[in-house]
Nucleic acid binder design. Structure first.
Lengths: 207, 207
DNA sequence: ATGAAAAGCGAGCGAATGCTCACATTATAT
DNA sequence: ATATAATGTGAGCATTCGCTCGCTTTTCAT
């Protein structure tokens, strides 16, 4: 049978061993990012830490960017899972209850892996493949907008797009800054206070 | 006279020619950042674009980081100039008038050089020397807090630090996202709407 | 058992980068 | 005019990095 030269399978993992390799590579990338920062994350080092050869690395990831993108994606999926769940859970609640929940969730989501979150926010240049973070932002925007639309009667008259933009930006920034500045030693009391205040900010604005 | 070996003056510019060299280097760095992004900004290229030799570059800047830091600093000083002026101008105004002015100024400040702003925000890893951006944030925080303190009677009872953090984070994020998403083609009408809404958000929160 | 596909290996290439250093030119003071 | 300091030059060193390729080992269907 005339086969195409099997020199370049490139990419997909089918056997279990290779899936483990891929996992090890992504995990190693994340660990290096957290421990040593973006600059120290060379492909050679990632392969070494993963206990894998560089050659194997390039069987599954076409570039260093792809590796970092995989880490970002994994982290964003974790966050989005929580956010999607919260938004579903909140769909039938009145605005004040809903906003409180969403604010809390936003802060919690940013606290999942604060060190990684910090590195991703501060050290990763959003270039080439890495620019797709915006997609997640757009999804959140859409979901929140849909919720607000369903609760329009509780709100004053506002342009929904503008209101969504304002609310999401504000909540996101406060959650983000809270985690970045406070590092990990955030008293639960402080978190509660910030959640209360942010809720007040947003709810007061919407109606 | 026994002098210290004049082999390593390093750094300070005293004659006019050298000050021009320093300027050219910073300007070239900024231009490369805007035109080609952070990755393409090598010291050799910066020197070339500045019409200066690499050697001269290293007489005034100990590293590539220092060069980028200088660009960031110049840009931040521009912004801080505007913000400081606005805060002074606003010191005797009531909260609603003051907030409106500050929100407008925040957006305008981010629009000074949107392309550079975007590169600095998206592509520059905040590492080593570059971490000092936080200092500007702290100054703004302090100035705003002082204003709010002087206007405490117009406000509800709040922890001033918390309120400052919330307001600054929100305003900054909205201004930032506005400029980043809308690029440069932002209708004046849209800007005004966003300023109005943000003002409402913040003023409603404070009292 | 066997052969082919899948997975893994790692020395090392070519390119780029940050930076140095031995030297040349210009400015300043006497 | 001359000496000294200030400023400027650029070829090239040392290093690192992303990545390739010829090869070996493992897995699996038959």
């Amino acid at each position: 049978m005339a086969r195409q030269p099997p020199t370049k399978p490139r990419k997909n993992a089918s056997q279990e061993r290779s899936r483990a390799t891929v996992d090890a590579l992504v995990e190693a990338t994340a660990r290096i990012l957290v421990r040593d920062g973006f600059e120290k994350a060379s492909t050679n080092r990632i392969a070494e830490v993963a206990g894998v050869s560089v050659g194997s690395l390039y069987q599954y990831f076409p570039s260093k960017e792809a590796l970092v993108a995989a880490v970002i994606d994994r982290h964003n999926e974790e966050i989005m899972g929580i956010v999607r769940a919260a938004l579903a859970e909140v769909a039938d609640l009145p605005i004040d209850k809903a906003v409180r929940k969403l604010v809390t969730v936003a802060i919690d989501a940013h606290r999942i892996n604060p060190k990684l979150h910090r590195v991703l926010a501060e050290q990763i240049p959003r270039t080439g493949q890495l620019r797709d973070v915006e997609a997640y932002n757009r999804e959140i925007q859409t979901l929140v907008r849909a919720y607000l639309e369903s609760r329009r009667k509780e709100m004053r008259k506002v342009d929904l797009d503008v209101a969504t933009f304002i609310c999401v930006s504000a909540i996101e920034a406060i959650a983000h800054n809270t985690v970045l500045h406070g590092a990990e030693m955030l008293s639960e009391k402080m978190v509660r206070t910030l959640a209360d205040e942010t809720t007040r900010l947003v709810v007061g604005y919407l109606r």
